[in-house]
Design a protein around this nucleic acid. Structure first.
Length: 295
DNA sequence: ATCGGTACCTGCACGC
DNA sequence: TGCGTGCAGGTACCGA
């Protein structure tokens, strides 16, 4: 589900709820609790289950940030070891991080509950990780930047001057490239399609063939699309909600994504769906013409 | 380097 | 109502 704007929204909504809190308990759903034991049900943990809970317990959440599509909690260990520790969550397609008022597993797809301490005004609260499809990943690491160092630049941070040469050196189709996290970190299927529409560029255009002018237009379109999506709290297609369970509204502003057969809001042509690099890709055949190649 | 296919999972919409 | 099918925002891995 979650691409950059959704993860950014989750992080922003989580920040005031968890910053400064101590993790006083970490509870994983027992693999056998729901009947038949499934050896794979903890596949989402990069760290073995027992060690996972032990390492989280007693740490304090000093900060939380987004890195590409990852939610990164910065933890401080209170017992002697003063090294920072990172709890890194990738939400996959259906992952949710929500603050709840109960320490109980509320859904059969809730996999982890962290108990956070309270303060003067408030009792504790519980951070729930829920993920129906279990494509998400939870890891604990000393150095998250090294772990995530293969990821490309953040699309909101890269400048137009840096973007063009990066594009120019690649020979794949733009749509595949925008989905490649090693190229840019944070775009997914929704925002790749929406950005290409906004830029008026056909998704199957070869990156190396893009003129400087059009590359700059794409750079601007990506920033614009992401910024607006963040403003609207992301796109809620089915599962996605922020830390307080609120849905986003950017799905109402989608121009092409999942609008196959509907009229283009700009020119009235029917939106088309094609497959590019085995991902469904939505575009307007008139606003996003394929540039003729000059010989 | 790049691509398509496959795998990992569950839920949902759809047609029959 | 039930069943089979295809599809879904994610990434990783394989072989071509």
């Amino acid at each position: 589900m979650p691409e950059l704007p959704e993860v950014e929204t989750v992080v922003r909504s989580l920040r005031p709820l968890v910053t400064g809190r101590q993790i006083i308990g970490a509870k994983l759903r027992e693999p056998s609790a729901s009947g038949v034991p499934k050896p794979d049900s903890l596949r989402m943990l990069i760290v073995p289950a027992r060690e996972f809970c032990r390492r989280l317990q007693g740490t304090r959440i000093e900060g939380i940030e987004r890195y590409g599509k990852n939610v990164v909690f910065q933890l401080r260990q209170n017992s002697g070891n003063n090294e920072p520790l990172f709890f890194i969550v990738h939400l996959g397609m259906t992952g949710r991080l929500t603050c709840e008022r109960t320490p109980e597993f509320r859904s059969k797809h809730t996999h982890l509950i962290l108990s956070l301490d309270g303060n003067r005004d408030e009792k504790g609260r519980w951070l729930h990780y829920t993920d129906a499809r279990r494509f998400g990943r939870l890891r604990i690491s000393e150095r998250f930047r090294e772990d995530l160092s293969k990821l490309g630049p953040d699309p909101l941070e890269i400048t137009a001057e840096e973007f063009f040469p990066l594009l120019h050196s690649r020979r794949s189709m733009l749509k595949s490239l925008l989905l490649d996290q090693h190229f840019l970190r944070g775009l997914g299927n929704i925002y790749a399609d929406e950005s290409l529409f906004r830029a008026g560029i056909h998704p199957a255009t070869l990156a190396s063939r893009l003129s400087r002018k059009r590359a700059l237009r794409l750079h601007e379109a990506i920033r614009e699309t992401l910024a607006r999506a963040i403003q609207k709290g992301g796109s809620s297609i089915s599962d996605y909600v922020d830390a307080q369970g609120q849905r986003g509204f950017f799905q109402l502003d989608h121009q092409v994504y999942r609008r196959t057969g509907g009229p283009c809001f700009r020119c009235g042509s029917r939106i088309r769906k094609i497959i590019v690099s085995s991902r469904s890709t939505h575009y307007c055949p008139r606003c996003q013409r394929k540039q003729e190649v000059r010989s």
